[in-house]
Computed example of a mutant assay.
Amino acid sequence: MANVKTYNPLIQERNGGVREVGGAAVWSLSSCKPGFGVERLRDNCMDTYWQSDGQLPHLVNIQFQRKTTISQIYIYTDYKLDESYTPSRISIRSGTHFNDLQEIEVVDLSEPTGWVPIPIKDSRDKTLRTFMIQIAVISNHQNGRDTHMRQIRIHSPVEGRNYPLELYGKFKTVELQQFTTIR
């Protein structure tokens, strides 16, 4: 069995190097079965999922009110449970609105189970600043028609969070957290 690396975006968020910015966005879908919409993508529960309803490609649109820096997108899938509903090819697009989206990344997935990290860079290999991200499911495993995505998290880097005192260890208690920076 191949060595499989597991990712957990929640650990990165807790460590303070990134923040989840999906909550600041307006989410929309190209289609969904009743009761299996955006709320299922954002409920932090791996047992629920968005299920599309219609022809490929299936789209998840994420629109921000202001230009937002995006460093990573995480998609949670489970091939063992979803089989032909699991995406096999995803296109990530970016722009200011629906009419000027440019493809920035294409990801091929082979029976993914767990968090799939997708690093996001612009055409000059710099961190992306955008008003809109679109995740397009181009194809599914076993030529499936509809898709399941269980969770999506959008990460933005946290700048200026390098605390020199953390070299001496993490400040875990509320009382000690006041000493994480020197003012």
Rank of each mutant, 00 (worst) to 15 (best):
D146V: 08
V158G: 03
M46I: 12
V21S: 02
D108T: 14
P87E: 11
W27F: 13
P119E: 09
I75W: 05
T127K: 14
P9W: 05
E111V: 02
K5V: 15
T69P: 10
V137G: 06
F171Q: 00
I11F: 13
R66Y: 04
R19W: 09
R145V: 15
S84D: 15
N3I: 07
E39K: 13
G169Y: 00
P9H: 04
K126H: 12
S94E: 02
P112A: 03
S71M: 09
R129H: 15
K172D: 00
I133V: 08
H141Q: 07
Y76D: 06
Y85Q: 06
K126L: 07
C45Q: 09
G22F: 09
V38Y: 05
R14H: 10
M132F: 03
Q134Y: 04
I62G: 01
Q72S: 07
T6F: 08
V60T: 00
R161D: 05
S28H: 10
V18I: 14
Q72Y: 07
L167F: 01
D53V: 09
Q55G: 11
Q65T: 12
T173H: 04
E105V: 08
L10F: 07
E175A: 10
G160N: 08
F64W: 01
N44L: 12
T173F: 10
L41G: 05
K80M: 04
Y79A: 06
